[in-house]
Design a protein around this nucleic acid. Sequence first.
RNA 1: GCGGGCGUGGUGGAACUGGUAGACACGCUGGAUUUAGGAUCCAGUGCUUCACGGCAUGGGGGUUCGAGUCCCUCCGCCCGCACCA
Length: 866
Amino acid sequence: MANPRYNARETEARWQKIWAERGVFRTTNDDPRPKYYVLEMFPYPSGRIHMGHVRNYTMGDVVARFLRAKGYNVLHPMGWDAFGMPAENAAMQNKVHPKTWTYDNIAAMREQLKLMGLSLDWDREFATCDLDYYHQQQKLFLDFLAVDLAYRRKSKVNWDPVDQTVLANEQVIDGRGWRSGALVEQRELTQWFFRITAFSEDLLTALDGLERWPDKVRLMQKNWIGRSEGLRLRFAFIPPAPDDFPYLEVFTTRPDTLFGASFMALSPDHKLTEKLAESNDKIADFVAECRRMGTSVEAIETAEKKGVFTGLTVRHPFLKGVELPVYVANFVLMEYGSGAIFGCPAHDQRDLDFARKYGLNVTAVVLPPGADPNSFAVDDKAYVEDGTIFNSDFLNGMTIADAKEAVASRLEQRQVANIAEAAREVNYRLRDWGISRQRYWGCPIPVIHCPECDVVPVPETDLPVELPDDIDFDAPGNPLDRHPTWKHVDCPKCGGKARRETDTMDTFVDSSWYFARFTGPRADRPTEPDVVNAWLPVDQYIGGVEHAILHLLYSRFFSRAMKATGHVAVSEPFDGLFTQGMVTHETYKGEDGRWLFPEEVVFGAGGTTHAETGEAVTIGSIESMSKSKKNVVDPSAIITAYGADTARWFMLSDTPPDRDIQWTDAGVEGAHRFVQRLWRQVGALTGKLDRSGNGSDPSSPAALDLRKATHRTLAAVGSDIEKLHFNRAVARIYELMNTISAAAPGVDADPALAAAMAETLDILAKLIAPMMPHLAEEIWAGLGHETLISEEAWPEADRSLLVEDMIVLPVQVNGKKRGELTIARDASQADVEAAALALEPVNRFLDGRPPRKIVVVPQRIVNVVV
RNA sequence: GCGGGCGUGGUGGAACUGGUAGACACGCUGGAUUUAGGAUCCAGUGCUUCACGGCAUGGGGGUUCGAGUCCCUCCGCCCGCACCA
């Protein structure tokens, strides 16, 4: 330890090699210790790791190393979310095969990750594009298909006519394909779906049990599932009713407003609309116009409520002789309820806009509190608040809730002549999950289309359906579909000529069960029941909040579907979830407004300038790191310059882990200074330590104080890490470090302090080990230990050192602190009062009068009320 | 529009169930040491006052012996959803 400067690069490589050689982080499935499964969201192999990965994996590694030290059998694996579009884009742009591109990227990123010193079990690594992985995924698909959790139906999709592919909603920008720029069309295609709605209710109610999830995420999922209770009503047509439609079915959550109904509206996609359009050009034109309407945010926000009268009318269920015209309206969604509504303009803004446009009646039936029933009317703002029902016959005077119930029970008892049928119904906004993608680089859907036998699952013995390697990306569309031979197969059932499904699965399918596969990554079935059920659920899952809905909801569905098909025993995959914040950085712009990389910018006395051109640079807002704004810092460069421990320490310091952290040079340098300071301080002390005792010598108050500070820190850091409050744990370690520096000069003359210091430095090394594992190993070895600190147990805090006999009690007068007194911890209330009243500042405020009241909160505070 | 969250020094942020506001760090100021340092060490650092003290957790009001924390209200910022009947 003579070297005053810590050489991170040399040291980190050395310890990483030792860990790997000794297999320190390899996890076995038959370990008798209690299990703990730590998982960070696995990366997409884009080619290079970014700071978000560094932050995510640092946090996970702290948890993994901490729990390993606490005596758990920790599973901490890593893999690759490796299918997806970017590989195909690279293939088109750079003429490189998606497989080559992906595996090259994985190799590069694995090397980068290894430089971070993460305590991962690399033996369990896999990529979702590995044949073995998607083979098992195909088995899952077939199992889901067998129990009807996977199915095929026609569905509206965004179709890019140039690239000849389906686009996700996120890939449609202002109505145009993000790559081709072509106007996106709405097309009906037959697509594969997972029946996530089979679990709507369970996915919703089970959220309450996810106590170790952020409330925010649970709420987002709740809103996404969107449960609402109401009635399904069948309105009778004024004869003649259209063929095949004896009644008009609607769903409503507001049956209390039935007396205010003034029209009916069908979705443009409603079956009845389609039928009417066949013989009515106006309707047909209107439907076509609606189809052209984009699905973009802007299009919906600015869309005018429009419709066209169908010529049909229905009877009002309660009001004799009242007839309601039936329209087709652009704001009615086919996907929700029955695709038809009754319109009550007074109490729904959309209905009101529509009614005003077409001159329909607006009858208020909910009276705001205190309003005059004779004069209250709705103008151009619908009344949607609470109130009392009026203008509504038998509902008059009721609350909204009572009126809903009254209508429901009356309809159920069939007391209404004009309603053919009514039933209570629960609807969800959640839709089934469309998984078909017209893409090459994904898991092939293992079915065969036979002209005789229809859809035939690929027999399990014929699995895997392997992606062909010889493909070309010269033309738009799905290369699998264009492949000369791949799709031509014989029907497994009848042996006749048949066609292989050329759609592949959404890559979200791949990431919906990888956590289960990590428990038995080489099994010849998707999971080994004994093993997977011993490991799941994941105890702590860590990742970005951007996955709050899709990935996390899909994974919750998958667990249920895998449970239904016997692959796992749990319904909930992730017991604890933590969503970390993003990494941000300042942005920089040159004189012409172009974005600049941080390394292009020089901060001089004369202002901020460009390193090469010398032009003035504008410092812009702080944004999350992104390639487009160039405000990125490459983790490899940081690790090369400062070492992984510095990068890790910085990521854990100062900012709470769930908030965005700003990456700054000053911050990194500060973290690095601490690494050096720690190294220097420990190095300066190693020769002076006394290993013959622990320093519990009553004759040395300095030793006792140091031991108290050490054990207090030990207890606090442990509980901070358990709560993932890494920034507080870091602050505690800084505090201990300051205490050590202050005590260091006394070690020479005080043998008890030298002994206490030995214990303190051992504990310090263990405290930093989860966060800066390389430095911790180096210090541990330097302190004379021959074990690996990575395999050492977390120390126990000595509880007798955590309580003080004498405490400092703040004394307030009228709630303001005026002084403090040092008193025995177990002093009686009378003693505390007497001591407080004896304080000079208190007396100054008392001014000779007796206090009105004295509040003593034991061991906390004294408040004298004058 | 609906739903949710957050506002604390120059900065990032501490403050457990209401109980010493500003821990810890960055930055800054002064000093020491050094050929030099973006290295290290020491001291200081919410605002205000010569001082006693006064004022301070987005603004205003309330509950309480006591409020950053609880309640009401207003302002500002951020996030999610988006015609869901």
